[in-house]
């Protein structure tokens, strides 16, 4: 069934959109990532104008994250305290990100820089996670005994705060910095930023994997809601019909994903996410390196 999207001004298959939403929703529930880093390029691919894809994706992430967070709330795997600290950083970061974005736009080449930052960030995060979880898997097979968390420089900073749900007593500086970084990326790359935040929470802050996902979803809801409003009021590029179709699939997918996630071991979950991040990174890198079949592209003039 074809449906005409009022803001995107294109006609697309409604079932395709629901299906895409569902697929990305499953990933979102499983890994605690918003799925924007997958969905946004997929929307470009089916012919949605990039500006509309980015803005609408933010709105859709709100829905799938909210649905996911409710499932985590019931299992008490959301660290509100940590989430709020991350959120403070996130909102500052998002505002900074918009400023940076507009500055890059005035220089031209914003498109390239967005792509490059995707490749660099996805590559680093995916590579590190893949190696680490591979090591963890092998170690688990050999010894079976879980390793005790080591103390690192993060534990020697001031402004310490107790995060009971995470079982941590650490400084608020690293989580705020992580939040700011994620906020900047969210605004520039049009994603929730979970794919950066989840590994940062695990490896940098040393949070238990169990609470990482719920907490990251909690933060993502607010950052993407803020981004949605920003896009809706300045660029008029949020397509509510597109969002509705994506989130019909997305919210159901997120519920399924959350349940699937509890069945898998943390190491398996991490290695799967890492593989996926690397896959998207590889595709984006290939697009930059291989000669495109059409060298020219069209954009709206002033």
């Amino acid at each position: 069934m074809q449906i005409y999207l009022p803001i995107a001004e294109v006609s697309v298959n409604a079932f395709l959109l629901v299906g895409l939403g569902g697929l990305v929703g499953i990933l979102s529930g499983m890994f605690g990532v918003g799925g924007g880093f997958l969905m946004t390029p997929l929307l470009f691919f089916i012919g949605i104008p990039p500006a509309v894809a980015v803005a609408t994706e933010a709105n859709q992430i709100v829905a799938s994250s909210f649905s996911g967070v409710l499932a985590h709330l019931r299992r008490r795997t959301v660290d509100f305290r940590m989430g709020t600290v991350l959120l403070v950083g996130g909102l500052i970061g998002a505002a900074l990100g918009v400023v940076i974005f507009n500055w890059l736009k005035s220089l031209g080449q914003v498109d390239l820089l967005v792509r490059l930052s995707y490749v660099v960030f996805l590559g680093i995060v995916g590579g590190l996670m893949f190696l680490e979880s591979l090591r963890a898997l092998l170690r688990a097979k050999r010894s079976g005994a879980p390793q005790r968390r080591r103390h690192n420089w993060v534990h020697n900073l001031p402004f310490k705060m107790k995060f009971r749900v995470s079982g941590l007593y650490i400084s608020v500086i690293p989580p705020v910095l992580v939040g700011i970084l994620v906020g900047i990326l969210a605004a520039i790359m049009g994603v929730g930023g979970g794919f950066i935040m989840v590994p940062a929470m695990i490896y940098l802050l040393g949070m238990p994997t169990k609470v990482v996902i719920g907490t990251s979803l909690f933060q993502i809801i607010f950052v993407t809601a803020f981004t949605t409003l920003l896009h809706a009021t300045t660029n008029f590029t949020v397509d509510i019909a597109l969002a509705l179709l994506l989130l019909l699939g997305g919210v159901v997918g997120a519920q399924i994903g959350t349940r699937l996630g509890t069945r898998l071991k943390a190491e398996q979950l991490r290695i799967l996410l890492a593989a996926m991040v690397l896959l998207v990174c590889g595709k984006l890198a290939a697009d930059l390196l291989i000669q495109p079949s059409e060298l020219y592209s069209l954009g709206a003039g002033e």
Binding site: I7, V62, F66, L70, I240, L244
Partner: peptide, 25 residues
């Protein structure tokens, strides 16, 4: 609505998202 009342439209989109998320859950 999206062009003349963008704030209301944006809030409506968010309400729809939250509502759908809650309903699915």
């Amino acid at each position: 609505l999206a062009h003349e009342r963008p704030l209301i439209y944006g809030l409506m989109s968010l309400a729809l998202a939250i509502g759908a998320g809650w309903a699915a859950s």
